[in-house]
């Protein structure tokens, strides 16, 4: 069990989302950066969709009431255990009584804390993700607060093996981490103007020439009014050739839609199930983690790729994750 001493800016329990209920208007929720979330789980011997903590920008202070096997993946929020900094992207054994806190956001803005066994919260509509606005799922349907006690689920055999190996190494220290590293392709690369790969959206052709050109030539900056639902972008105003009312139609993670004020919105994990604004583009699934780690004020540039390329990149990424799963299995049979 982990006790929350301070909650941080927005710390919530998420898995890979609620699937199959969008037809009832229920949003998917789930991790903003599903890649970091999945790897964090795999590293501690969990299934990749186990419930983990999504920590945003300014992290919480957490006290381990019992020993645990954890991993910290995603944005680098300078994790520290009992005064000593902890390496990310690897399994870490933590002794009871240790205190995990976070410092400056060095890179990215969302960090995933996975524990062996996952966090034990009830499933609501087949998912443990927190649906903040409806107040369901996760820990009592809300972000975690001071004094909350987060209970671990049952650790798998594989988790226990990893834990045993590390427990012996810990000796006098509060924690011990595996000297593994994750293939660099999974890690974040931040650039001053982040390139983001997109496919043209369903209504791309309805936009006027200037808007179509500007979309790929200019930079767009993330507005401060951005959250898990969507990122609002500042940049050249985008307009359709002739505005006509559009019927609401389904959208997905990474849809870029443009309301009549001309400012695009990227729809993210807490997006509504349908949208009535023209879709200028769709972000390639492989680049969603890049977006999820960007902060307000940061800039991006859209790079066009074909629909087929996007799918191939996704299949390649999944193949690499599959290799990672195999690697962990081989090491801890």
């Amino acid at each position: 069990m982990i006790k929350v001493l301070k909650p941080g800016l927005l710390t919530s329990i998420q898995d890979l989302g609620r699937r199959g209920y969008q037809k009832y208007g229920v949003i998917t929720s789930g991790a903003m950066d599903p890649l970091a979330h999945r790897i964090a789980n795999l590293l501690v011997g969990n299934k990749d969709n186990s419930a983990a903590l999504e920590i945003t920008l300014s992290g919480p202070v957490l006290e381990f009431q019992e020993e645990g096997l954890i991993s910290l993946c995603g944005g680098d929020l300078s994790p520290v255990i009992d005064g000593e900094s902890v390496e990310m992207w690897r399994p870490v054994y933590v002794k009871p009584g240790s205190e995990l806190r976070f410092g400056q956001a060095k890179q990215g803005c969302r960090l995933y804390l996975a524990v062996a066994g996952g966090f034990d919260v009830p499933e609501v509509m087949e998912s443990k993700s927190t649906y903040l606005r409806a107040g369901i799922g996760g820990f009592h349907g809300r972000a975690v607060k001071e004094a909350d006690e987060l209970v671990f689920g049952e650790a798998s055999e594989r988790s226990q093996k990893i834990m045993e190996e590390l427990r012996q190494e810990a000796e006098d220290s509060s924690f011990a981490s595996m000297d593994w590293y994750i293939a660099s392709e999974f890690l974040l690369v931040s650039q001053e103007v982040q390139p983001v790969r997109v496919m043209p959206g369903r209504q791309f052709d309805l936009f006027n020439q200037e808007s179509k050109a500007a979309f790929f030539q200019e930079d767009f900056q993330i507005d401060s009014k951005s959250d898990r639902m969507g990122y609002r972008l500042e940049g050249p105003a985008l307009h359709v050739e002739k505005s006509e009312d559009m019927l609401s139609e389904p959208v997905s993670f990474g849809t870029v839609q443009v309301p009549s004020n001309g400012k695009p919105i990227i729809l993210l994990a807490d997006r509504q199930t349908t949208g009535g604004y023209p879709k200028i583009a769709q972000i390639a699934t492989v680049d969603l983690p890049v977006i999820a780690q960007m902060k307000p004020g940061e800039k991006m540039k859209f790079v066009e790729i074909s629909h087929r390329e996007a799918e191939m990149l996704l299949l390649e990424r999944e193949y690499r994750i599959h290799q990672l799963i195999q690697g962990i299995r081989l090491k801890f049979q």
């Binding site: 699937r19 037809k23 019927l247 609401s248 389904p250 199930t273």
Partner: peptide
Amino acid sequence: VIEYVPAFASVAIHYDPMKVM
């Protein structure tokens, strides 16, 4: 298939390309 989402005049199918392949 992950899920179907019907709207006013359209139906979306969200699918898993890895399973398809």
